[in-house]
Nucleic acid binder design. Structure first.
Lengths: 345, 345
DNA sequence: CTGCGCAATGTATGCGCATACATTTTCGAT
DNA sequence: ATCGAAAATGTATGCGCATACATTGCGCAG
C-alpha cells in the first residue's frame, strides 16, 4: 500500500479512468453483462453458483455500478431533488434529515439545493434539477411561479410541497395553515390577559402570513395596533435581539407580549429583555415558533408553536414513495400545530 | 410471482413521459441533434441565425437537457458529492452553503449526504455516491477506512478532506490542527489565571482530539486532572446544560474554566450555570468552539475558538476546481484558528 | 423416454447525448 | 471570378446499463 496520493497535475476523468464495467465483471465470472446486471437487481433470478462467482468477481475488481448509465437505460434515476430555502436553518435541515433517511432506506438519494428564499433562484434551480431527471421533487412552500409549475408539470414526476397547505397543490402538499397558527397565538395571548402585543418577523413569506393573521386577530381583542419589527433576511438570535431593542426603543414596548416568527429570534428577544432588566414573562411574554430543540432548554423555557416535523418528513417521503409505486395517496395533508405552553408566555 | 410489471394508471416515468430530446428540438429548428448540442455548450460555434431558431424551438417545446445522458456520453457528471457528519449542525451546513455556491457558479451541483459520525455509514455512502460518477468528492475529517481510501483511489477523482489536516491526505485537505487548538485554549485559560478546568465534549473524533490535547496541556500547568463530561451524540444546548449539571453535581465544579467542544454546548453550560446562580465568568469561565453566529449575541458573549469557515468553503471548492481544470494545487491547507476573547472567559 | 414448463442465461437494442471526424457552406483575398 | 481556409453543419459511434425477447438446460409427469 504505497502512499502515492500524488495524482500529478494531470486532468481527471477524461481519457482513461480504467473503470470496471459489468461486462468486465461478467468476463471474469464467465457470464455476460446481463447476468451481472441481474445478479445485482434480481439476485433470485440467478443461480446460487453464478451469483457467487459474480460476487467474487465484483470484490476482485472493485466494481462500482454506474448509476448514470443505469438511469439512462431504465429511465429511473433513483434521485429525488429537494429545494429548501436555507441550508443553515435547522427547521429545514432537520426535516431534510428525516426525509432523506426515509428515502434512502428505499433506495433513493436526495439532491438538495438552497433557494435562499428567492423565487427567481428557485425557477433556475428547478430547471437544473430536472435536467438530472429526478424521480420526484420536493419544494418548500406553495407559492411558485407559473414557469415553475409548468416545468414541473412537464416533467411528469411526483412533486411534494411542504410547510404549507393549499387547495391547489402541484401534486401533493404536506403542511399546515400558517394564518390559523397566527390567529391561534393571538387567541392564546388574549386569553392570558395581554392587551398589548408586538411581533418580530423574518422576511419569509410564511412568517409574514402568520404575522399578519396574528395582528389582525389580536387587534380585534385590543384596540391597539400591533407593531412589527422585521428582522430582515433570516432569523437568528442576533436579529431577535436587535428587533426587540427596536421595539423597546422605538415603540416604548416595556410590557405585553411578543410573537416571534422563529424560536431563534424569540431567544434573542429574551436575551435582550433580560439584559435590559425586563422580566420574562412578568413584564414581557415571548412566544416563539418552531419548537426547536433548545426551546425547552433556555431560561425561561420558551412557549412556542410546534409542528410535528418528524411526521412532516415521514409524510413527505412516504407520499412520494406511494406515488412512485403507483399507490393511491391523499394529496393534501394538514398536519396542524400545537401551542406548547412553557415559562416564557 | 411472475409478470408484475403492470403499474397502476397514475404511475410515473415508465412508458410515457413524452420527454423532448435534442433531436426533437433540432427537427423543429431544421437542424440535427448535434447542432442543438453545440448551440447549448458552444454557442459561438453556431451561426446567429440557427442559434436563434434553436432557442425558439427550445422555448416552444420546453426542452430540458438530459444531464444523465450527457454525463454518460461525456464522462463528466458535473456533480460533486459531499459527505458531512450532520445536516442539522450549522457548523457543517454553513460550510456547505459556501462550498455549494462556489461550485454552482462553476456549473457543478452538490450531492450531499450525512454520515451521522458513523464510519461504517460513511463507507456505504461513498460507494453509493461513487455510483453516480461524481467529478469530485468532499469528505469530512481525515480518518477514513482503508476500504474508503481504496474506493476513492480507484475512482480517480479529486477528493478534498475538510475540517482537519494530515500529512497524508487522500488527495487534498483543508482544515486546521485540532490538537493545537486544544492546547491553545489550555494556554489561554492558564494565562487568565485559572487553575481548575473541565471539559464538555461531544462524541466527535475531532472534538475528542481537542479535548485530550487540552487536558494534557492544562494538567502540565495545574497538577489537577481535567474532568470531562461527554454529551454523547451531538452537541446541543440541552446536552450542554446536562453536562454542566453533571460536572457540578458529580465533581463539585463551582469555579474554574470549562472548555466546550461546541458553542452550542457552551451556551447550554452558561444557561445551567446562571440558573444555579453561578456567575460567568467570575465563578466559572466558559470557552466554546466554532464561533457560531450567536456566540457574540448571548449573555455573556461567548469566548470561543474561531476558524475561518468562509475561507474553508472557498478553499475546498477552489482546490477541487483547480484539480478539475488541471491546475496545480497545494494539497495541504492549514487554515489555523483564533481564540476570540469575549466576556465569558 | 418423450415432451412440456420453468429456471437460467444469452442476444439484441436503445436510452439521449458528446465527440471525433467528414462534409458542405461562406467569404475574403487574389 | 477563383481558390482555399475557416466557419457551419452533418454523420457515425458508443458511453454502460436495463429490458424485451430468444435460447438453452433441466426436472418431472405421462
Amino acid at each position: 500500500m504505497p502512499n502515492d496520493h500524488k495524482m500529478a497535475d494531470k486532468n481527471f476523468k477524461k481519457p482513461d479512468t480504467n473503470r470496471v464495467t459489468m461486462a468486465d465483471v461478467g468476463r471474469l465470472a464467465g457470464v455476460t453483462q446481463v447476468t451481472v446486471s441481474r445478479a445485482l437487481s434480481h439476485p433470485d433470478k440467478v443461480s446460487k453458483k453464478t451469483l457467487h462467482s459474480i460476487q467474487d468477481a465484483i470484490a476482485a475488481t472493485g466494481f462500482v455500478p454506474n448509476a448514470v448509465a443505469g438511469a439512462l437505460a431504465s429511465k429511473r434515476s433513483k434521485l429525488v431533488s429537494a429545494l429548501i430555502p436555507s441550508l443553515t436553518n435547522v427547521v429545514y435541515t432537520s426535516f431534510m434529515a428525516t426525509f432523506s433517511e426515509h428515502l434512502r432506506q428505499n433506495g433513493y438519494q436526495v439532491l438538495m439545493s438552497e433557494t435562499g428564499f428567492d423565487p427567481a433562484n428557485e425557477d433556475a434551480l428547478i430547471a437544473t434539477h430536472l435536467s438530472r431527471r429526478p424521480d420526484a421533487m420536493l419544494l418548500t412552500g406553495v407559492r411558485h411561479s407559473d414557469k415553475a409549475r409548468k416545468q414541473l408539470q412537464g416533467a411528469g414526476i411526483p412533486v411534494v410541497e411542504i410547510w404549507d397547505i393549499t387547495d391547489i397543490p402541484i401534486d401533493i402538499c404536506v403542511g399546515f395553515n400558517h394564518s390559523a397558527a397566527g390567529r391561534a397565538v393571538a387567541e392564546y395571548l388574549n386569553a392570558k390577559g395581554h392587551s398589548f402585543a408586538a411581533t418580530i418577523t423574518a422576511d419569509d413569506e410564511r412568517a409574514l402570513r402568520r404575522q399578519s393573521a396574528f395582528a389582525e386577530r389580536f387587534s380585534t381583542f385590543s384596540r391597539t395596533t400591533v407593531p412589527d419589527a422585521n428582522t430582515g433576511g433570516i432569523a437568528s438570535i442576533g436579529a431577535g435581539r436587535e428587533a426587540m431593542a427596536h421595539l423597546i426603543d422605538q415603540y416604548g414596548f416595556q410590557s405585553g407580549a411578543v410573537f416571534c416568527s422563529s424560536d431563534l429570534s424569540a431567544h434573542g428577544a429574551i436575551i435582550e429583555l433580560r439584559t435590559r432588566g425586563l422580566k420574562v414573562p412578568q413584564d414581557v411574554a415571548v412566544v416563539g415558533f418552531g419548537d426547536q430543540d433548545f426551546a425547552r432548554d433556555i431560561d425561561p423555557a420558551l412557549t412556542t408553536v410546534a409542528v410535528d416535523r418528524l411526521q412532516l418528513g415521514h409524510l413527505a417521503a412516504s407520499s412520494l414513495l406511494d406515488r412512485l409505486t403507483g399507490q393511491p395517496t391523499k394529496s393534501i395533508h394538514d398536519l396542524g400545530f400545537e401551542i406548547l405552553t412553557r415559562a416564557s408566555a
